[in-house]
């Protein structure tokens, strides 16, 4: 039988203060991980410190880059047009997380602090170079999200530390990102594999990258890419992140290096997929077999890159390659 006291602090300071004095305490935001763990008896806290009444943890600010509070719900992110347009990978994740009911209560802070290898927002945050701001008994500090995840359920948070918010830099016009969650079901499912990518493109002759009709055909993706090759679209910056292929969500840094500075071509994307697959250490589980996960990295890296590109070229269009997968 698990009994606990439920505390509802109104400020961040109060929450951190309670954490310092209470025995066996746990922060709880939306509770969609915490309550499940309590029921499974994997967690037996004596005190729950709720973050739901702390106004300073709920905000979305796009004045400079993107900043949002830890207790922002997935729905709030999902419904934000600027995030959808400029940080599409994040919306790809929040729009397919759990179900609407879950998204309305679950928070992005909870998602990263729970640190499941399958956490849906992890890969997008990795490719978007997010920084995590934390406060604790010893003051405030910033942690790059790549350093934040340390293993299944393990983060860089010290005891009593709380995530205040996250910030993402602003990327130029020619940047696009995407996240593909590979699942068996359309909803209420964790990814067998998740892949996020972000790329920044430039034209060799400095011409406008946008508003080309390449993707508006029913041509096969490889043909589209072959045509793009002639246009010499150069990749200035690339990020690739993968979930459920290692104990923690990880960047595929070698694959990123393969892309950087190169001209877009079908062969290049193929190679990036293969290199990313070689960086992963997927395992067999009842949710998916290792060989399958490896195969899917190759496919999804390619597809996520294409999706990211499409978002640069046709920023206001519905994603056309969606037709295919």
């Amino acid at each position: 039988m698990n009994r606990y006291d439920y505390h509802q602090p109104g400020t961040i300071e109060e929450a951190v203060g309670l954490m310092a004095i209470l025995d066996d305490a746990k922060y709880i935001a939306g509770g969609t991980d915490v309550m499940v763990l309590i029921r499974q008896k994997k967690l037996k806290p004596k005190n729950l410190i709720s973050l739901r009444n702390i106004k300073d943890l709920v905000y979305i600010d796009t004045a400079k880059g993107l900043r949002f509070g830890a207790a922002t719900t997935h729905s709030a992110i999902d419904n934000h047009d600027i995030i959808r347009r400029n940080y599409s990978a994040l919306t790809d994740a929040t729009s397919h997380l759990g179900s609407l009911q879950i998204r309305n209560v679950a928070t992005i802070g909870g998602n990263i602090c729970n640190a499941a290898p399958s956490a849906d927002t992890a890969c997008p945050l990795l490719v978007l170079d997010a920084v995590v701001s934390v406060v604790g008994p010893k003051g405030a500090r910033d942690i790059a999200v790549d350093d934040f995840f340390q293993g299944p359920g393990k983060t860089a948070l010290a005891h009593g530390e709380l995530v205040k918010g996250l910030s993402i830099p602003s990327f130029g016009e020619n940047t696009g990102s995407a996240y593909i969650k590979h699942t068996r079901r359309q909803a209420m499912d964790l990814p067998i594999l998740g892949v996020a990518t972000r790329i920044t493109l430039s034209m060799k002759n400095g011409a406008e990258v946008r508003c080309r009709d390449m993707f508006c055909t029913i041509d096969s993706i490889s043909n589209i890419l072959a045509k793009l090759k002639e246009e010499e679209l150069k990749i200035d910056e690339a990020r690739i992140a993968m979930g459920v292929v290692a104990p923690r969500p990880m960047r595929a840094k070698k694959a990123e290096a393969v892309l950087t500075g190169k001209v877009v071509s079908p062969e290049l994307f193929e190679e990036a997929g293969n290199v990313a697959a070689s960086e992963a250490q997927p395992r067999d589980s009842i949710r998916g077999e290792a060989w399958y996960r490896s195969e899917m990295i190759k496919v999804l890296v390619k597809r996520a890159l294409i999706k990211s590109m499409d978002r640069i070229i046709r920023p206001d269009e519905a994603i056309y390659p969606e037709r295919l997968w």
Partner: peptide, 27 residues
């Protein structure tokens, strides 16, 4: 397309709605 009770050596490995895949409304 989805459902299977995974028994390994007599033990059920997916006795929950996350891993036992019944279709959802979206499917």
């Amino acid at each position: 397309l989805g459902e299977k009770m995974v028994y390994v050596n007599g033990e059920l490995k997916n006795g929950n709605f996350l891993d036992y895949k019944i279709p959802t409304a979206k499917d």
